[in-house]
Design a protein around this nucleic acid. Structure first.
Lengths: 239, 239
DNA sequence: CCTCCACTGGGTACGTTGTACGCGGTTGCA
DNA sequence: TGCAACCGCGTACAACGTACCCAGTGGAGG
C-alpha cells in the first residue's frame, strides 16, 4: 500500500524525472487519435493504428497512456478545449450561453465520435474544468448552484440531443461504407413500409416534413435555442 | 441483384418457413442479453456469454440475429417498450409529458448501458415507433411538426442529460470493480486537489453542494422537469 | 410411404483487438 | 564509473466477433 495506484489520468504525471528523452508525447498521441477518429470513427482509432500514424511501435504508446480508455478520456478533454469560453461571463448571459451552445454544437459536428464516448463519469479534465467554471459563472450571480446546474443541464441537453440527430444519418452512412445515394436507397424501403402501413400518422408527418426542403439546420438550431433561453429567462425572473 | 440484402433488422423475418423448429427465439436472446447488460454492463454481454446464459452454443445466436450490433438494436428497442405511453394523448399534455419523462428516466436507471448505446441512427424499431407516435401526439394538436420536434428534443435532452449524471458515478464504481467506499477514497484526492488549487471557485461550490445532503434525486429531477414544462407552456402560449 | 433439402444447433478456426512482459539500449545522478 | 530509472518496441496471449462447415431434422412433393 506504499505507492498510490492512480485512478485518474489527470493525477498521473506525463514525464518522470530521469531516463532518456521521450520521443513522443501525450499531446501528439491524442492529436493523432483524434485525427483518425474524425476521419474514420472512434473504432478505427486502435492502439496499433494510432502508433502507426505517428511512426511508433504499438506498445510505445503505453509509456504515455495507461490504457486506451484513458486515451479516449484525453481525447474528449482535448476537444472540450476547442469550445471558446474566454471572457465569460461577459455580463450578457444570453450572448454567453448562445456562444457556448454554438461552440458546443460546432465541436460535436467536427468530432462526431464524441457522441459514442459520453462515458459515464465526466472525469473533470483541465479543459472541462475550465469550461464548467466559465459556463456556470454566467448564471452564478443570479441563481443558486442547484438552479444553475438544472438550467445548464437543460441547455446542454438540448444541444446534445439535437446535434446527435444531425450526426446520426451521416455517421450511419460512413459506418455502412456505402455512398449516400446507395444508403438512402437501402434504408428507405423500411421507412416506406412503415409509412404505408398507415398505423403511424404522426411519424408519417415527420417523414414528409423531413423529406422536403426546410429551414437550414443552423436556423432550426438557433430557433430551438431561443426557446431554451426564454426558459432560462423565465427562471431568472421567477427567482 | 436479385434478392435484397437487408439493411435493417426490422425488415428481416425472424422465422423462415421450412425446417426443424428453432429451439430459441429473438426475444429470448434479447432478454438474456439485457439481463447480463443490466448486471455487468453492455461489454459483458458478449455473444458467447449470452449463448451460455440460455444454454446454447455461441454460433447458434447467428441463426436468429445477423450481428451483435443488430442485437444491441433489438435490446434498445425492447427497453423502449418499457416506457408506458398507453392512453396518450390523454388531453392533459402536462400529465402526459410528465409520465413520459418519469418513464424514460426510470427505464434508463434500470438499464444504464443504454447511455453507451445511443448509436447514431435511431433505427425506428416497433417500440420506438409507437413511442414517437404517442409522444408526438401529445402536442400535435397545438403546434407544428417542427415546433413539436423541437420541444420534444428539449424534454428528452433534459431527461437524458440529468439521468446520465445520475448513472455516471454508479457505473464508474461498477467498472472499476472496487467497492463504493474504496472508489470514493481513490477518486476524491483528485477532486480535493482541484478544489485546493483555488483556481476553480465555482466548481468548488458545486463540490461542496454535492457533498452535503440535499434534495433527493427524484425531487431534483421533478423540479427541473417543471422548468422544462413551463418552457413548453410558454411555447404553446406564444403559438 | 419415401425422398429431398431447407433448415437446425454448434464445433472449429481466423483475424483483430487491448495489453502484460521482457529485452537491449540510453540517460542522469551518486 | 557505475547503476537505477527510463526509453522504444517485439513477442505473446486471452478474448472478441464471426465465417465456414458439419451432421442431424422434419415438413413438402411425389
Amino acid at each position: 500500500m506504499a505507492d498510490a495506484e492512480y485512478v485518474n489520468i489527470w493525477m498521473r504525471p506525463e514525464r518522470p524525472a530521469r531516463g532518456p528523452k521521450p520521443v513522443y508525447s501525450r499531446a501528439q498521441i491524442t492529436e493523432a487519435a483524434i485525427r483518425i477518429a474524425d476521419a474514420e470513427g472512434l473504432e478505427a482509432a486502435t492502439m496499433r493504428r494510432i502508433a502507426a500514424e505517428i511512426g511508433a511501435g504499438a506498445m510505445s504508446l503505453y509509456r504515455y497512456v495507461p490504457s486506451r480508455d484513458d486515451l479516449v478520456e484525453l481525447m474528449a478533454d482535448r476537444v472540450m478545449g476547442e469550445i471558446d469560453v474566454t471572457g465569460m461571463p461577459s455580463g450578457d448571459w444570453r450572448a454567453d450561453l448562445t456562444r457556448y451552445a454554438d461552440g458546443l454544437r460546432a465541436m460535436w459536428l467536427r468530432h462526431p465520435w464524441i457522441a459514442t464516448v459520453q462515458r459515464s463519469l465526466p472525469s473533470f479534465g483541465p479543459h472541462q474544468l475550465l469550461l464548467i467554471e466559465r459556463l456556470m459563472g454566467v448564471l452564478d450571480a443570479f441563481v443558486s448552484i442547484d438552479e444553475n446546474l438544472g438550467l445548464v443541464a437543460i441547455l446542454a441537453g438540448y444541444v446534445e440531443g439535437t446535434v446527435r440527430e444531425e450526426i446520426s444519418a451521416a455517421e450511419e452512412v460512413r459506418r455502412s461504407g456505402l455512398s449516400e445515394a446507395e444508403w438512402m436507397a437501402r434504408s428507405s424501403p423500411y421507412i416506406d413500409q412503415v409509412v404505408k402501413s398507415g398505423d403511424y400518422p404522426i411519424f408519417t408527418k415527420i417523414v414528409i416534413e423531413a423529406r422536403q426542403p426546410h429551414l437550414s439546420r443552423d436556423d432550426q438550431f438557433r430557433h430551438g435555442l431561443q426557446r431554451v433561453l426564454d426558459c432560462v429567462a423565465a427562471a431568472l425572473a421567477g427567482a
